[in-house]
């Protein structure tokens, strides 16, 4: 076996204050008010969510907000039952791409509720196209996790 030499432990902790800008500030304000805000591109007519300052496809400037549906369809999901650095709560985590009704891109968030606590249950209840709706946290602070998760519509 090869010899292991010493190691040096060092933790880098760097504080940042990220400027959200006008669009994300407004999007977060929307979440705090229980609304999911998007933008409609005047050129390609796509409704983009989260709201943004320009259309990534046509580069049209977007300054009008639209409230988008709080229901949609599952596009794909991934299941993990291990806690990890930066994980959004306690496992299991079901990350999912969700196409909210009337929008033109997939919204990245979590699935939960309705017994979605084991892989078997998720496999049984969630397929491509499964209808899901938003479940809000009681305390909303204007952050992404104000949406607790999306749960299947029964």
């Amino acid at each position: 076996m090869q010899k292991d030499y010493n190691t040096l432990e060092n933790i880098i902790r760097l504080p940042h204050k990220y400027a959200a800008g006008p669009i994300f500030t407004r999007f977060y304000d929307g979440l705090r008010a229980g609304k999911i805000l998007g933008s409609t591109c005047p050129n390609c007519k796509k409704v983009l969510v989260p709201a943004r300052s320009f259309c990534p496809q046509c580069h049209a400037n977007l300054d009008e907000f639209v409230e988008v549906a709080q229901e949609g369809e599952v596009v794909s999901w991934a299941y993990s039952d291990k806690e990890f650095f930066g994980s959004p709560g306690k496992p299991p985590f079901i990350t999912a791409l969700i196409r909210l009704d009337g929008t033109g891109c997939n919204f990245l968030h979590l699935l939960g509720g309705d017994g979605l606590n084991t892989l078997e249950n998720v496999q049984a209840k969630v397929k491509k196209g499964t209808r899901v709706k938003v479940v809000w946290n009681e305390d909303k602070i204007g952050r992404m996790l104000d949406i607790k998760y999306f749960e299947p519509v029964s």
């Binding site: 940042h16 959200a20 794909s76 650095f85 930066g86 985590f93 990350t95 990245l108 992404m144």
Partner: peptide, 27 residues
């Protein structure tokens, strides 16, 4: 891997490569 993405939106959900590739595989 969590520092590859911004903190506003994706960092909550993209905590490493496997989740991304799982969703892509399903798609």
């Amino acid at each position: 891997m969590t520092t590859v993405v911004e903190p506003f939106y994706q960092r909550y959900f993209i905590a490493g490569a496997p989740g991304v590739f799982s969703m892509q595989c399903q798609e």
